[in-house]
């Protein structure tokens, strides 16, 4: 007992699975399974036990050079310490928000921070338009600027209840309550079966949940 994990403790940013399990919807076994995934992702280009943006892009798009506004924002939010890499603890805590059992409030807040591109505490109209343009670009959908303006205006006038030209957290929460499908992208059903994805780990685990 003990030797198995003491080896892993040498990885930079490694954290005790029991601590991470206590802070997230994952069980200890699931955190350990996530470590298997983390090791794979964090060694795909640079073998340093940290997920670099290129490694994140490679896993997400099968292309290390493919950049995308939303992928950049997701990476930045996962990179809590803002040091340009995702450490194991950051990875587990952030993925925890995407767990089907994570609180809706956490998902709503994460989405707000994601869409608050310039981190001003508000989702501004310009940011919303920028995100719509990014989505259209990645989907190769073509809409006229007039149509885009109508879509953004309509959404904005509905969400910006106070009418001050920006969407704050409270307005965002109300808007999500009215349109719960907006945070569907904050849930990964797959995370419920994470130990099934990495069964080799479960065989070697000595920790019981």
């Amino acid at each position: 007992m003990g030797c198995y994990w003491s080896k892993k403790a040498k990885t930079p940013g490694y954290e005790d699975p029991a601590v991470l399990a206590a802070e997230t919807p994952f069980t200890v076994n699931e955190v350990e399974a996530l470590y298997e995934l983390f090791k794979k992702l964090s060694s795909s280009i640079f073998d340093d036990g940290l997920i670099h943006k290129e490694e994140f892009q490679l896993a997400l798009f099968k292309n290390k050079d493919k950049r995308n506004l939303f992928a950049d924002r997701i990476f930045d939010l996962f990179d809590v310490k803002r040091n340009g890499v995702i450490e194991f603890g950051e990875f587990v805590r952030s993925l925890g928000v995407f767990h089907p059992n994570a609180p809706v409030e956490d998902k709503t807040e994460f989405a707000f921070r994601l869409y608050d591109l310039r981190q001003t505490g508000y989702i501004e109209r310009e940011e919303l338009k920028e995100m719509v343009l990014a989505l259209l670009h990645e989907s190769e959908l073509v809409l006229s600027d007039d149509v885009i303006e109508v879509i953004v205006d309509k959404t904005y006038s509905e969400a910006d209840k106070k009418g001050d030209g920006r969407i704050d957290q409270e307005e965002w929460r109300e808007f999500v309550l009215k349109h719960p499908s907006l945070i569907k992208n904050m849930t990964l059903p797959y995370l419920k079966d994470i130990t099934l994805a990495f069964p080799s780990f479960v065989m070697s685990s000595e920790v019981e949940d």
Partner: peptide, 25 residues
Amino acid sequence: KPVSMNAFELISRSKSFNLENLFEK
């Protein structure tokens, strides 16, 4: 009709949210 779309609904469909791709072997 595109004009009836909710802008946030639209952006939530970005492929970047397919985080299950991270788990592909």
